[in-house]
Design a protein around this nucleic acid. Structure first.
Length: 644
DNA sequence: GTAGGGCTATAC
DNA sequence: GTATAGCCCTAC
């Protein structure tokens, strides 16, 4: 595997995490959701090892759940609500970090309280009561609050002056402060590099995440560099830096940051790859991309992929991958030569690549982690570093694109403007139609069985009717497309979302760091479907569909036990029955289906550590609720299914 | 911590 | 009833 690739991936990863936290801090939750998608999509990429990578992911998981915690119909981990998932992640954080017991309890109570409030506001009184009893501390300082909430629940009052005083935004910021007290994410290398170059200047004309890239010329540079830069980044502003400056500062910082690869080497490889590309037929690359896509059932299960394909991906060697999507002209890349560094795990459902492209006429560079599916509806997630042909600038663009009549493009651009030599950081979202993204397409589900969904792909749980789920794309940019795609477990999904680098549906249901959203309006009429984002997928939720009250109670109990991590004291007949059953083998358990992303992590982990090294693998990836034994079992299943 | 067999829950 | 993914238990 290319060392350069790992390093570059980590750079982008660090930048994205940093920007995500910054956007959360600034209250730009839409941008946070977008960049969270990008971060999640990068997890499967080979990355230069840094001890805090998993920790950063854990923080992102926590905040992502908190960010969506007021949406009861979203789930990150079936059947938990986002805040229940947040409680689970909180436990993981507390295990991994030395969190004072008192702080743990405070945050736990804050989450539980907010969950109760959200339930009450939504009229979910039963759930609110359950949470109140199970999670709300009986400490003296919260006794009054508990009594009040209990009263509201009892009287079925979803509105009260006290409830209005509770701000979810404040809660989000409180949770962010908690995270930042635990772990202060250091300024990323790329940002340092830009600052040290002396060219990091903020734009005075912040653009919104949905603004067009055409605004690049309209920005001004009157703001103060530091503060303005933060604002600009946050709102999609723009930074600019010249390639020469980056080279200079790269040299300065590479040693300090432990980067052994000279800048010139990157450029040399780009040129070399560009030359090789011109000598190799693009068809080979396309074949590679398709053949290694387990989303295609026949190919994924057959194990007949050309060996060269596996070797190229597993070895993470530099290769030029020219796919349909790449060959399709776009405003960004239609005229560029493209050099791509393969960055996806061999068995990833859809190609994920890091692309470095160079324009012979402009000395441009683009680096694109790209996840793409080769269907007529494509979703791309890209991080691009490019030098503009006309300006010799650098751009960093997380881009999600769907090359259909409904295109969605999200970009984070760091560029240097040829005319101003400024630094720009901006997010751009483009849609060829009014609809930002089409997440559902029934036709695709069959043609592309397993697709990577994106982190923010959301699953909306049908907790009331339990009959159907519509998978929508992103938490903040949900597409309200009709639930045309219906899926049952075992069927392939098909979804794409604006934010999702990729939409993957896995037959097994999954748990996602990004929520899955099910449309309440339609769920009663459709079969369950699920998208998989960085952890998305399709799954049926057995517990939800059960109608017996005892079954529901069992499911609920399991849910709360999962959320709290503790054994609940059940006082009803259920608990008595369970107690009578004896301490032997647990009779009931909740099956937690594996997401595409989790499977990808597992594959990547086995590739890195080898089969049997389940504990190191578990530690190396942000698995939640998975034991080493679970990983072992899952691997056994995957081998059985010839998925590996 | 890991491997392997058996059990359970679920879909069909 | 059968098949099977995922979980549990036990031995090492």
């Amino acid at each position: 595997m290319s060392e350069d690739e790992r390093i570059i991936n980590r750079w982008f990863f660090d930048v994205c995490v940093f920007k995500a936290l910054e956007s959360f801090r600034n209250g730009d939750y839409t941008f946070f959701a977008k960049i969270t998608n990008v971060v999640e999509s990068m997890v499967a990429l080979p990355m230069d090892g840094r001890g805090d990578t998993v920790l950063k992911l854990r923080c992102m998981q926590f905040l992502s759940r908190v960010n969506n915690g007021d949406k009861l119909d979203l789930t990150f981990e079936e059947p938990k609500t986002p805040l229940e998932s947040a409680l689970a992640v909180l436990e993981s954080l507390c295990r991994e970090l030395d969190v004072p017991q008192r702080e743990q309890q405070r945050v736990h109570n804050a989450i539980a309280e907010m969950l109760i409030v959200v339930c009450i506001r939504s009229g979910e009184f039963e759930k609110a009561e359950e949470i109140l009893h199970r999670h709300f501390s009986a400490a003296a300082d919260t006794a009054g609050k508990k009594k009040l909430l209990a009263s509201l629940i009892q009287r079925r009052r979803s509105s009260h002056s006290v409830l209005q005083l509770i701000s979810y935004s404040d809660f989000k910021q409180d949770m962010l402060e908690f995270i930042e007290r635990l772990y202060r994410v250091p300024e990323p290398f790329l940002t340092q590099m830009l600052k040290r170059s002396g060219h990091l200047r903020p734009s005075a004309e912040p653009t919104t995440s949905s603004s067009s890239s055409s605004s690049r010329k309209g920005r001004s540079s009157t703001q103060k560099p530091s503060a303005a830069a933060a604002a600009a980044e946050h709102h999609g502003g723009v930074w600019c830096v010249s390639l020469q400056s980056v080279r200079q500062v790269y040299g300065e910082l590479s040693e300090e940051c432990g980067v052994s690869v000279p800048f010139s080497r990157l450029l040399e490889e780009v040129e070399l790859e560009a030359q090789q590309q011109s000598q190799e037929p693009p068809g080979d690359e396309l074949n590679l991309a398709l053949s290694e896509t387990p989303m295609e059932p026949v190919e994924s299960v057959s194990g007949r992929e050309p060996r060269v394909t596996l070797r190229r991906y597993t070895g993470m060697t530099i290769s030029r991958l020219v796919t349909e999507g790449d060959s399709q002209p776009s405003e960004d890349d239609s005229q560029d030569n493209i050099t791509q560094i393969s960055g996806c795990s061999p068995l990833q459902k859809s190609p994920q690549r890091l692309v470095i492209r160079s324009d012979p006429e402009s000395d441009d560079l683009e680096v694109q982690p790209v996840r793409r599916k080769s269907t007529d509806k494509q979703c791309d997630n890209r991080l691009i570093i490019r030098s503009d042909p006309e300006s010799d600038d650098l751009e960093v663009q997380p881009v999600r694109r769907k090359s259909t009549d409904k295109q969605c493009v999200n970009r984070l651009i760091i560029r240097s403007d040829p005319e101003s030599d400024d630094l720009e950081v901006k997010t751009v979202r483009q849609s060829s139609t009014d609809k930002q993204c089409d997440n559902s397409s029934s036709g695709e589900s069959r043609s592309t069985p397993a697709r990577h969904s994106v982190p923010p792909s959301v699953r909306r749980s049908g907790k009331k009717t339990h009959n159907s789920r519509r998978v929508v794309v992103s938490s903040d940019e949900e597409c309200e497309d009709p639930p045309s795609d219906r899926q049952t477990a075992g069927q392939e999904p098909h979804h794409s979302s604006v934010n999702d680098p990729e939409c993957v549906l896995e037959r097994a249901a999954p748990q996602s760091s990004t929520p899955a959203r099910h449309s309440r309006a339609t769920r009663s009429n459709h079969s369950e479907s699920e998208v998989h984002s960085t952890r998305p997928q399709v799954r049926s939720s057995p517990a939800d569909s059960r109608s017996s009250s005892s079954g529901k109670r069992r499911a609920k109990r399991a849910r709360w036990q999962d959320a709290s991590g503790i054994q609940e004291d059940w006082s009803d007949e259920e608990s008595l029955f369970s107690a009578a059953s004896g301490p032997s083998r647990k009779k009931k358990y909740t099956k937690k289906l594996w997401t595409v992303q989790e499977s990808d992590w597992l594959k990547e982990g086995v590739r890195r550590f080898g089969v049997g090294r389940w504990e190191p693998i578990r530690s190396a990836f942000p698995f939640t609720g998975r034991t080493a034994c679970n990983l072992k079992d899952r691997w056994r299943t995957m081998v059985k299914l010839k998925m590996v």
